[in-house]
Design a protein around this nucleic acid. Structure first.
Length: 294
DNA sequence: AATTCTTCCAACCGCCAAGTT
DNA sequence: AAACTTGGCGGTTGGAAGAAT
């Protein structure tokens, strides 16, 4: 079936965004919100493709974006998640508050992949390419030091990224988790009933009979950690689809939200984010052990 | 100082899946 | 069910900037 271009290409600006365009887009989105990307350029008075606007906003203009200065904890997490997930940049980025998939991907391609291959020169490692949000070189040098990495063998869970439209979740559990979704083990809710999910894309045997409770993913990560798709057919839980189903948009447990947008946000001190990342790393340790035992 | 080489990353592209008509 | 739209993803690339010669 044919696919029309997202917008007419004629007369549109391409390439780097000007400060004026950035202001226009930011102002429009602040007023009208995200979405409707196709119509946005015209309404906002931008000579850009909607797709380009979306990308610019998501990767650069969003207020919650962190840029540069990828911490050691974040780097470690990227490596671990990449080991588990492969090039699933959006999933990986979803676990790094304020980081975009593009940034993680670039960081991997330009730095980490070389580092993992042991081919990174000291020169590269010491480069000062960190930039501030305006794209100017920053005076703060935070490029991490090279360090020996243990193994590069991969346990990649290769699932197709699919849109999660429904999450089968009993109301009570949802409420429990909403009230306790920090990563402090002491305040986690009681163990949830195992939710057995199936991946209808069948791209990974690992996904079959995957028991979330074994990994306490629902406590630590959100349900789309493995891009689980519960569509009312492929589920085998105590719960049934239907009126009790929560749509994805209602599902409040992405790690990003847990760390950044949580209703309990006030309880996080500035440095606790790093703490949370460390906890996530601990989780990944147990995750890897579990997978090796399979 | 001028030129060439290297690196980085913002932006683009094509594709896919879900949603809508 | 088919046709189409929309949003999202990962791979790739071009240009800017810094490093090397």
């Amino acid at each position: 079936m044919g696919r029309s271009p997202c917008c007419a290409k004629e007369g549109l600006n391409r390439g780097a965004w000007s400060a004026r365009e950035d202001r226009t887009l930011t102002s429009y989105i602040n007023t009208h919100g995200e979405g409707k990307w196709r119509d946005l350029p015209q309404k906002a008075g931008l000579k850009r493709c909607g797709k380009s606007c979306r990308l610019r906003w998501l990767n650069y203009l969003r207020p919650d974006i962190k840029r540069g200065n990828i911490s050691k904890e974040e780097e470690e997490l990227i490596i671990r998640l990449h080991k588990l997930l492969g090039n699933r940049w959006s999933l990986i980025a979803g676990r790094l508050p304020g980081r975009t998939d593009n940034e993680v991907k670039n960081y991997w391609n330009t730095y980490l992949s070389k580092k993992l291959q042991g081919k990174t020169s000291q020169n590269q490692l010491n480069r000062t390419k960190d930039k501030n949000p305006e794209g100017h070189p920053s005076s703060v040098e935070q490029v991490p030091q090279a360090k020996a990495l243990k193994s590069t063998t991969s346990h990649v869970i290769r699932t197709r990224a699919v849109r999660c439209t429904k999450v089968i979740l009993p109301q009570q559990q949802g409420n429990q988790m909403m009230n306790t979704h920090n990563l402090d083990g002491k305040s986690l809710p009681p163990p949830l009933a195992p939710i057995r999910v199936m991946d209808d894309t069948s791209t990974s045997n690992f996904m079959m009979d995957f028991d979330i409770d074994d990994l306490f993913i629902s406590d630590v990560l959100n349900s789309d950690f493995l891009e689980v798709r519960c569509d009312g057919v492929h589920h085998a839980t105590d719960h049934e689809c239907g009126n009790n189903s929560n749509s994805c948009s209602d599902y409040p447990f992405s790690a990003h939200e847990m760390l950044e947008d949580s209703p309990n946000e006030a309880m996080f001190e500035p440095n606790e984010e790093a703490l949370e990342l460390k906890k996530l790393c601990s989780f990944l340790d147990s995750e890897e052990e579990w997978m090796e035992s399979q």
